[in-house]
Amino acid sequence: MDMIEVYDLTKHYGGFKAVDNVSFNVKEGEIFGFLGPNGAGKTTTIKAILHLVNISSGEIKINGLDVKKNEKEVKRNIGYLPENVAFYDNLTALQNLYFYADIKNASRAECMSLLEEFRLKDSAYRRVGKFSKGMIQRLGMIQAILGEPRLLILDEPTAGLDPRGVVLIRKKIQELNRRGVTIFLSSHILSEVQEICDRVGIINRGVLIAQDTVQNLSKKLDIKPKISIELEKISDQILDAIKKVEGVEGIDVLENTVDVICSSGVKAKVVVAIENAGGKIINLRTREPSLEEVFMKYTEEGVEGA
């Protein structure tokens, strides 16, 4: 059963084609990642699904119903976190949530427990106008999941969050998914999609390049992760130790930094080997394939699996 069906969706803004003949489906119970750089047409597609913009052509169904014809009924089952979510600044966090809860027919008690869960309890009675970007984003997430919707549409859910906030939101998404909630999320970060999604749609310049499982996506990319390790001092002894680690496919040295090509499971062993050889790590970064590399892979080989 498909939760979202999009057929031949096209949206023009004047002469500009923001979304060009896009078709995809989101299955009930899955986490679907909508991946693309900023300005690729992700938000426009989401707005079309929610009937916030008038589509130029195409058809959209949610839970089997035409969105335009059954607006109210369809929206009863949806929670939506918009990109750059905003609230009513003069009202407190709780007053804002009560407003959403009332319209969604959700219980007001749920508001307070969610504020607590998202570490906003202390700010429940503060005016939202004084909130930081990260707090607004977390409040936005609460607003979306209020009333236990069956489908969550999240536009860049981790934007503006600190690492702790990112983990919080991710865990919540996975927890809700285990409870059967279908999740459609957009992102411009490949690793984010790879980590939590079941399937992915990749969009660039308004065109859907691919629709694939994340497993296939990773296989197709087959770009070995590279870790960059900055050391206090490099010695031959350390380099030999790294080379001896099973799974390391090559190293590259530039001044005090060693780039190690290896599968991600080997990362920890490399670190241990360096330390055993007496090296001192100053900084460690994991380099992942860029979206451009993803697009190249998919466009080179044609649109498969779509």
Partner: peptide, 14 residues
């Protein structure tokens, strides 16, 4: 312009 209309209209309202 502020962005709150998007979430308002995603609720079950006409």
């Amino acid at each position: 312009e502020r962005g709150s209309m998007s979430s308002l209209l995603s609720l079950p309202v006409t």
